[in-house]
Design a protein around this nucleic acid. Structure first.
Lengths: 232, 232
DNA sequence: TCAAAAGTGTTTGCCATACACCCATGT
DNA sequence: ACATGGGTGTATGGCAAACACTTTTGA
């Protein structure tokens, strides 16, 4: 650290809020801590950042170590640095979030001893978390709630092929309100970012719904130029 | 720092992007550095954060030391932590922005030797800045450009009493496009967050325009509940 | 045949946009 | 009287919201 004054040194960490959607429920990925402080508590996957790695790669590494997940693109959303947030000293944390496709295989498990287990916790059953992680989670949730209304991030949570009803359910869960079926479909189809498949749902005991795919090409065409759903 | 592993220690700093509006020009507050590295370069006001202060109060303190400004509310917008961003070592920086009313008195001056001078630089004349500050500035500018279209932050830049044309000019400068006068007025007045005063402009050699004030009460009434300009 | 969800259109009001001329004031 | 910006209205198209019934399928 050559010429920089030591009295300013601190420690910083990253914390990750990973959203998943499964069985109609929005979930986030938590670990059960295996070390003091807060041993036995649930916490967001997070740890200290090394001096030789960028924050982004630290986030990727830490997520992998604590949950076994790899190659997840995360977006930074806020940095928390209140004085008392870590009982052992000054730790500033950079928080990231991501939304991922569970695809059924939602088994996650730590590859280090730092966490005892990793679990997909339904958002509605969230316990109080270690440190200020409950606060971090709430902030991330506001963020995606806001973002989903002008960017098509919901697709990242769904399986590759999905029905319009599944998509609508997801919006309803995140926005926490009922939406009108006809209006929702009209609007979604009008955006022209879905690809209708020749396939139908299987294994349901009622009329099977058409399956759709998110069409990245069409999306890029419209929105990389125009920026967003609602803003010119 | 008791039980936390020392090898992870780093240094972190804050940088502030302060927007002002004067003589029809959008400006930001820069300092001329008086210390190596980048001695003599222009930079955002910023410095290292002490271990005993919160990030927010560090931002306030540093802004004061470098520019003499006090009591400015700043909002955090991103944290920059690329490995090579500081030539002397690993420094992560938390970036803040604020928009302030210049009110004519736009004299700023450092109260420490760390900066040789502080200047209000027109955004259109921005030089290349020290460190990665040009990048930080660009990110802050995207942020306010986006934000102004759904939140009434423009008022913070204008004098307390302003004309609709001044307000429109400001929007045009930030959004970098021409707006239609009639539509702009109609829309602004429809939001019902302006208070028309009994006063008129003075000292102009043409028809004097009515003055308006931003009405915080009305604003709170509408928007704290409804969230934003454009979204439901 | 019943239960469950899929699928489908129209009407209404509001909001954004486009567009051009007269007014008031100071010099 | 002229130059400069201040101030004003209307028509159009598109989007959002409200609203209910028929169809398909498996059990």
């Amino acid at each position: 650290m050559e010429n920089l004054p030591l009295q300013f040194e601190s420690i910083f960490s990253v914390d990750c809020v990973i959203f998943g959607f499964d069985e109609g429920e929005l979930r986030i990925l938590l670990i059960e801590r295996n070390e003091e402080p807060f041993k036995g508590w649930f916490a967001l996957p997070g740890n200290l950042v090394d001096n030789t790695e960028s924050i982004e790669s630290a986030a990727e590494r830490i997520l992998y170590e604590l949950t076994g997940l790899k190659g997840i693109f995360m977006e930074q959303f806020y940095t928390f640095g209140a004085l008392g947030r870590h009982p052992l000293g000054r730790v500033i944390t950079v928080a990231y979030y991501a939304m991922i496709r569970l695809n059924g295989q939602k088994d996650v498990k730590p590859v280090t001893d730092y966490a005892r287990q990793a679990v997909w916790m339904p958002v509605k059953d969230m316990p109080e978390l270690a440190f200020d992680h409950s606060r971090i989670f709430r902030k991330s949730f506001e963020k995606i709630k806001n973002k989903i209304s002008y960017q098509p991030i919901a697709f990242e949570l769904l399986p590759e092929k999905f029905t319009l009803t599944q998509l609508q359910n997801l919006y309803e869960v995140i926005l926490d309100k009922k939406l009108d079926k006809r209006n929702f479909r009209k609007k979604m189809l009008a955006y022209d970012i879905l690809k209708e498949l020749d396939e139908k749902q299987k294994g349901v005991s009622y009329r099977a719904a058409k399956l759709y795919k998110f069409d990245k090409r069409k999306y890029a065409k419209h929105f990389n130029k125009e920026l967003s759903f609602s803003k010119e």
